[in-house]
């Protein structure tokens, strides 16, 4: 052998059938592209509804306080609304920022660090938000009664 055996390119055995090489790692980017469009349409309905109810109806932003949130989440519709909005917006936004990081962060290390921070933020915010929606207590004990929801027994 004239060359170092370790550096010799792999050659298929003679007469072995042609095997097409996989050039992609699955359809992940296609699904992500479709998801951005599908979730985007749903998010328009969810977020426009959210903004209308919280900023346009009644006194708008001035009406928002603990009692306002308690009143909304007393209705399962708004719980489901906010949960769906949280998850879809976080996945849509995280996927969008992931695309931007991939576009502009050229060093592997920079890209890895930025995306790790992004996914960490995603997990923290989604878990925290979901727990808040499901464990919310509209009538916390020891809270001043003028601050809690109007339907609480303490009032």
């Amino acid at each position: 052998m004239a060359y170092g055996t370790s550096a010799v390119a792999k050659v298929d055995a003679p007469r072995s059938p042609y095997v097409r090489r996989r050039t992609t790692r699955g359809n992940y980017e296609l699904y992500s592209w479709v998801f951005m469009r599908a979730s985007g349409v749903v998010l328009i309905v969810l977020i426009f509804g959210h903004l209308f109810v919280n900023l346009m109806v009644g006194e708008g932003v001035h009406a928002i306080d603990f009692g306002f949130v308690a009143g909304k989440w007393a209705n399962p519709l708004w719980q489901v609304w906010d949960l769906l909005m949280l998850w879809l917006a976080m996945i849509h936004g995280t996927n969008g920022v992931r695309t931007i990081i991939n576009d502009y962060a050229q060093k592997d290390l920079t890209r890895g660090v930025l995306k790790s921070l992004l996914y960490l933020a995603f997990v923290i915010v989604v878990v925290l938000g979901t727990l808040v929606i499901f464990t919310f207590d509209p009538c916390p004990v020891n809270a001043p009664e003028h601050l809690i929801a109007s339907f609480c027994p303490a009032r």
Binding site: F66, G93, V132
Partner: peptide, 30 residues
């Protein structure tokens, strides 16, 4: 589209955190 998307995303992170204060106390949230 990119600039507005990033702005909205960062607001969303803050907005979930501020809403999470309802779990701390009515005073903190208000």
């Amino acid at each position: 589209h990119r600039v507005t998307g990033v702005l909205i995303f960062f607001f969303l992170l803050v907005h979930v955190l501020d809403t999470a204060l309802v779990r701390v106390s009515p005073e903190a949230y208000n």
